[in-house]
């Protein structure tokens, strides 16, 4: 079975719990994590990532509140059967908004459109 992998960038402006939640959400949307798939325990994920268990617990709680995950006490946490998957159009809009926000941030930092475009092409 191929696994998805999470990474937490401590230097990012996005809080670690949100980075975790966003990556799990993305794995569910890509269908790398199928409905009812069991997630690692809070302790295991925190240990693997080298972060505090509270951070992982917060990410799981937030995703449970949003309906993505289901907590089953000692049996762990699994992907909800009816996770609120975005439609293709919503996903495309989300991606567009994220890219626009990112590009605007770079322009505020003084990068030209050509520089940003070149960097994107190199990165991709």
């Amino acid at each position: 079975m191929s696994a998805s992998y999470l990474v937490v960038d401590e230097s990012s402006e996005t809080p670690p719990y949100r980075q975790i939640a966003e990556q799990i959400r993305a794995a569910i949307e890509r269908r790398d994590l199928m409905p009812n798939a069991t997630l690692p325990t809070v302790r295991q994920l925190a240990g693997d990532l080298g972060i505090a268990p509270n951070t992982v617990a917060r990410a799981y709680t937030e995703m449970q509140n949003e309906g993505w995950l289901v907590g089953e006490g000692r049996r762990g946490t699994r992907v909800a059967e009816n996770a609120p998957l975005a439609s293709g159009r919503e996903r495309a809009r989300g991606l567009r908004e994220a890219v626009v926000g990112f590009v605007e941030g770079l322009q505020h930092r003084g990068f030209s459109v050509q520089e940003i475009s070149r960097a994107f092409q190199q990165a991709l």
Partner: peptide
């Protein structure tokens, strides 16, 4: 080995 890296990747698989 555990101290060898700051940035760690974690598999989304329960062990």
């Amino acid at each position: 080995f555990r101290r060898a890296t700051e940035l760690r990747f974690a598999p989304l698989v329960r062990r």
